[in-house]
Computed example of a mutant assay.
Amino acid sequence: MADNFVLLSGCSGGGKSTLLAELCARGHNVVEEPGRRIVSEELAGDRKALPWADPAAFARRAIEMALADRQSARALSGWVFFDRGLIDAASALDALTGDTVLETLCAAHRYHRRVFMAPPWPEIYEADSERQHGFKTGLAEYRRLAMVIPALGYEVVTLPKTSVSARADFVLASLSSGIRSAVRS
């Protein structure tokens, strides 16, 4: 398990990327969402693995990218925050195709025991060129992840609907309290 790899997951458009930028500005290591990077590459290329063109191909690319991200992040020290990751991609592929990679991949490549989930937040949700699905689709994804992540043995911590600065404080305090608890045990 990579105990310093912290996963930010949850509802699409729930503020994960904004939180990631804040954590980066505070000096923490961050890994941007595979999905947005893939969409950007595909829009500039052959467009075969776009999520709205071939969702299964998109999920497979996201799995490959998440695994490569984890490999690259091994060289980093301190907290490494991932905007989505392997769990998101593997659970999407499983939901789309019934492919059973989820448990095997996620057992071999663990994140910190606490996963931070961005709840549905329709007031800040925005579609854009890389996020073309609607809020309902994001909500369905959130519900799937809210079931999958604890089933994989993670403690789900819901991010508060507050300012990005307060969210970053919340995440860092939650991780610090977890470390102190583990040391006292």
Rank of each mutant, 00 (worst) to 15 (best):
A2I: 05
D3K: 07
D3V: 05
N4S: 12
N4W: 07
V6M: 12
G10M: 11
G10C: 13
C11H: 14
G14D: 12
G14M: 06
K16H: 09
K16D: 10
S17V: 13
L19P: 00
L19S: 02
L20H: 04
A21K: 15
E22W: 03
R26S: 14
R26F: 13
N29D: 12
N29I: 06
E32V: 13
E33K: 11
P34Q: 11
R37W: 04
R37E: 13
R37P: 01
R37S: 12
S40H: 11
S40L: 09
E42G: 08
L43Y: 10
L43W: 10
L43D: 10
A44F: 00
A44R: 12
A44G: 03
G45S: 15
D46R: 10
R47D: 05
K48I: 09
K48Q: 15
L50V: 08
L50A: 09
A56L: 10
A57K: 11
F58E: 04
R60I: 07
R60S: 04
A62V: 04
I63S: 03
A66W: 00
L67V: 03
A68V: 04
A68N: 05
A73M: 07
A75S: 13
L76C: 14
S77H: 10
G78V: 06
R84I: 11
L86I: 04
D88A: 05
S91F: 06
S91K: 04
A92D: 14
D94T: 13
L96W: 00
T97R: 10
D99K: 01
V101N: 02
V101R: 07
L102F: 03
L102A: 02
E103T: 12
E103V: 13
T104H: 05
L105E: 00
C106F: 03
A107Y: 02
A107D: 13
A108P: 02
H109N: 15
Y111V: 07
R113F: 07
V115Y: 06
A118E: 11
A118Q: 13
P119V: 07
P119H: 07
P120W: 04
P120S: 13
W121R: 07
E123H: 01
I124A: 09
Y125W: 14
D128N: 15
D128G: 14
S129G: 15
S129Y: 11
E130H: 15
E130C: 14
R131E: 15
F135S: 08
F135V: 09
F135N: 04
K136F: 04
G138W: 13
A140C: 02
A140P: 01
R144A: 05
L145V: 08
A146R: 15
M147P: 00
G153I: 10
E155D: 14
V156C: 12
V156F: 06
V156Y: 06
V157E: 01
T158I: 15
L159V: 00
L159M: 01
P160K: 01
S163N: 07
V164S: 08
A166T: 12
A166L: 15
A166G: 05
R167I: 00
R167H: 00
A168S: 14
D169Q: 02
V171Q: 01
L172T: 04
L172F: 04
S176F: 05
G178M: 00
I179N: 03
R180F: 03
S181T: 14
A182W: 13
V183C: 06
V183Y: 05
R184G: 01
R184H: 07
S185R: 11
